[in-house]
């Protein structure tokens, strides 16, 4: 996994316990390096399992799960999209199956995937496509670090406070193009 993401801007990379949470690696990426990471995973013969969004206090955590046909394990790539402007680049031209997953995420959470070739409502009726049913009430939103497993941290970009337990307040906003450790 290290080798796969080498040279890409990564905010946070951790090894996780498969027996406990069902994934072997997780990485928070800045939106800018998502497409490149997806391309590398495709080249390494990974396939996309699903895309889901999680409505947290810091923004929508969009999670991409990847698995492999020959190797066991699961990789979770995460991108944080702020509530005000939830924009994430689309990977539908890399993994073609992502087109539907992204449209579904738009239906449920209103995350916009820029570059999706056919960005129309998938599951929701077009007449009520803007009700975003799985968005949470702002008061009941949880913090990312409370629920997601921290794992064994391999690298954490400076200024990336989402997963640090004692980070001061909610200093968030995904940490841009920081150099990987």
């Amino acid at each position: 996994m290290d080798a796969l993401l080498k040279g890409l801007a990564v905010d946070y990379l951790a090894a996780c316990d498969f027996a406990k949470t069902g994934k072997t690696w997780q990485a928070f990426l800045p939106a800018a390096s998502l497409v490149k990471a997806a391309q590398r995973l495709l080249a390494a013969d990974y396939f996309l399992e699903d895309i889901s969004a999680l409505d947290c206090a810091e923004g929508y955590v969009v999670t991409y799960h990847f698995a492999h046909f020959e190797k066991p394990g699961r990789i979770a790539l995460r991108v944080v999209a702020p509530h005000e402007a939830p924009n994430v680049p689309s990977i539908a031209h890399v993994f073609h199956g992502a087109e539907w997953h992204e449209r579904e995420t738009r239906d449920f959470h209103g995350v916009q995937f820029e570059g999706n070739p056919n960005f129309i409502p998938l599951l929701m009726d077009p007449d009520m496509a803007d009700c975003f049913p799985l968005r949470k009430d702002p008061k009941s939103r949880i913090k990312v670090r409370d629920v997601l497993e921290a794992g064994q941290v391999l690298c954490c970009a400076p200024g990336f406070g989402l997963m640090t337990p004692d980070a001061p307040a909610e200093a968030q906003a995904p940490a841009g193009d920081k150099a990987p450790a």
Partner: peptide, 20 residues
């Protein structure tokens, strides 16, 4: 508290459930 992903082989393929 926490998250978990579990997959089984269904008749149609990989069934996965992701919980937070």
């Amino acid at each position: 508290k926490g998250e978990a992903y579990f997959a089984v082989e269904g008749a149609r393929g990989k069934i996965g459930v992701y919980l937070v």
